[in-house]
Simulated scan of single mutants.
Amino acid sequence: MKLAALRTMSAFAMIFALQGCGTSAPASVDGLRRVVGTDLIGARGATPEDQRKIDRTIVGICAAAVWTKAECAQHGERG
């Protein structure tokens, strides 16, 4: 599995873990779904198409300012 996929999954795991620790839930599931999208479903990072799915997900997360500009700039630099 590519490093980018692992970083993405780690970020989602952290989001869901924090939610379980009593932090505020997203304003709406529909809003979160619009930001994150559904491209990651089934993506494993093993093919160029999988990488495009990961990249599309990252674009939504960065556009919604969930991650900082510096964090978003790192996507694709490593891996």
Rank of each mutant, 00 (worst) to 15 (best):
K2C: 09
A4K: 01
A4L: 10
A5W: 00
A5E: 05
L6Q: 10
L6W: 05
M9G: 09
M9E: 03
S10W: 04
A11F: 13
A11M: 13
F12C: 09
F12P: 03
A13Q: 09
M14L: 10
M14G: 07
M14K: 11
M14D: 08
M14T: 08
F16Q: 12
A17V: 07
Q19N: 10
C21A: 11
C21E: 10
G22I: 06
G22C: 04
T23M: 10
S24E: 12
S24H: 08
A25T: 12
A25W: 08
P26L: 02
V29G: 05
V29Q: 10
D30H: 08
D30F: 04
R33I: 11
R34E: 12
T38I: 11
T38C: 08
D39W: 00
D39V: 01
L40G: 02
L40W: 02
I41P: 01
I41L: 12
I41Q: 08
A43G: 07
R44L: 13
R44W: 05
G45E: 01
A46R: 15
P48S: 10
P48R: 05
D50Y: 01
D50C: 00
Q51S: 15
R52V: 14
R52T: 12
R52C: 08
K53M: 03
D55C: 04
R56T: 05
T57I: 01
T57Q: 00
I58F: 02
V59F: 02
V59A: 04
V59K: 04
G60S: 01
G60F: 00
I61L: 12
C62N: 13
C62R: 15
V66E: 00
T68A: 05
T68H: 02
T68Q: 02
A70M: 03
A70N: 07
C72F: 06
C72R: 04
C72S: 07
H75N: 14
R78G: 15
G79I: 07
